[in-house]
Design a protein around this nucleic acid. Structure first.
Lengths: 251, 251
DNA sequence: CGCACACTTGAACCCCCTCAACCCAAGTGG
DNA sequence: CCACTTGGGTTGAGGGGGTTCAAGTGTGCG
């Protein structure tokens, strides 16, 4: 049933992946279902899930969740990368995380979003209305369990980020980021040595509690120390994984 | 059924609160049930919950959860205050949060604890074996829902802490901490102006990503600016709440 | 009393930030 | 085609907020 879809163009960039053309069974052929909370729903009930979902594409730069706004929708990322961030009145920004395909957004169960989300490369999401999804959750306790699991994993990540922001030096932060991003962006969680960085230096800085200049200088130092190779601004190769991991751990 | 228990002494400090003397119904008379996840269990099924729980007391300084150890137990705090922290090989420490009565510990669903917990004042907990509690969860979806809610709230707190650690100045951090601690430690969530600080300056520093000296200097400056009164080392009074709140928000 | 421990205060230092210049690639428009 | 702009990145020089190191001040407790 699934067919190869011609790459849909968004701001000159492609979203090259396979999707179903059958509007009756979008979830059944979803590429990221296996990595997302949706795999808690049994095959025969997928229509129920699909009925609550709408696909949406966002170009690079689009803010699709705004901190403080009423949380009327949940999102499941199916392609691309988004930054999740909080902002202070004077413009200071903290990126609390990057979200890739399979990531569930909107876990904050409160009435308003706790953070904003902006596409750093073209993003595709499944959008669920909150009330509809809650009725699905009600009927499938396994989904709730999966959400709890997800929330706990995010908590662990958040705690590691707090350690990074509170106690690590600039080079330890950048090393931690490279290792961790190589892991999460690698296929199926397997870390790769060639690492694509879709976000800008400013985004990395806003995630690590540093400035653009410090991130740039640190990457340059890593390059001089032969720990990494900088292929171009948005791709690096990890040459000394063990060294970076030790630095990241603070040993 | 409940009687006033003579204050039990732990390392010279009291745990002054009412508990049940009826060993058959500990949960039914639990003081903190209303503020904890346990209120998701209906009255008639409390015996089921009680059967999975054991009460434990820990003196000041006792580490009762160790990061990295197998997560065999969950804990529900019923009295006292604990610090939750991660440590680096060289001893650098980040306190990811403080837990008070009603706080559920062990949410990280992974096989090992993601952080350590240490009593900063005498602590009483309900300890649940993981397998027993999971069977209770299985039978009461409402409990799972409550845990998800809790996890989401902690996630929101964690994101605010990341903003603090990544982007706020020392005085903004201390102001944020005072305001936030006044809120969570106040009865029923109502902030009080007289704030008891059971943790040491070192703990505050390790929570805010600062040093003892900076915390001390900042409190002294707040005192000179008439924003707070320092009653003694472990109690301050907030004199200029609006000013501190504005500073905490970064305005 | 005297020791231990937590906290405070002072002075010097340093890591990272700030400010500024510059590079480079990709538009864009005449 | 070149001139110009724009956005992201790099590099350098100087300054500052917080740390480090050190000394001193309570304060509880044996």
């Amino acid at each position: 049933m699934a067919e190869v879809m011609s790459a849909r163009r968004l701001h000159g960039q492609a979203l090259p992946y396979v999707v179903s053309h059958d509007p009756r069974e979008p979830c059944a052929h979803c590429e990221v279902r296996g990595r997302s909370v949706c795999d808690a729903i049994p095959d025969r009930d997928l229509a129920r899930l699909a009925a609550a979902a709408v696909t949406r594409d966002f170009p690079r730069g689009r803010v699709f969740i705004e901190e403080g706004q009423p949380a009327v929708d949940f999102f499941n990322m199916t392609a691309g990368t988004a930054k999740l961030f909080k902002m202070m009145p004077d413009g200071r920004q903290q990126i609390v995380g990057f979200a890739g395909a399979g990531h569930f957004l909107g876990l904050a169960v409160a009435d308003n979003y706790a953070f904003s989300a902006q596409a750093v490369e073209p993003v595709r999401v499944c959008r669920f209305s909150r009330v509809k999804l809650q009725s699905v959750i009600h009927d499938f306790p396994a989904l709730e369990q999966r959400l709890l699991e997800t929330a706990c994993n995010e908590l662990v990540t958040a705690q590691e980020t707090m350690l990074l922001l509170g106690r690590k030096s600039a080079s330890e932060r950048v090393a931690s980021f490279l290792i961790s991003w190589a892991r999460v962006s690698g296929t199926c969680g397997h870390p790769r040595d060639r690492v694509h960085l879709p976000m800008t230096r400013a985004d990395i800085a806003d995630h690590l509690g540093l400035t653009i200049e410090t991130v740039s200088r640190t990457l340059t130092r890593f390059r001089n120390e032969k720990r990494i190779r900088v292929n171009d601004a948005s791709e690096i190769t990890i040459l000394d994984r063990a060294g970076l991991e030790a630095l990241a751990a603070g040993e």
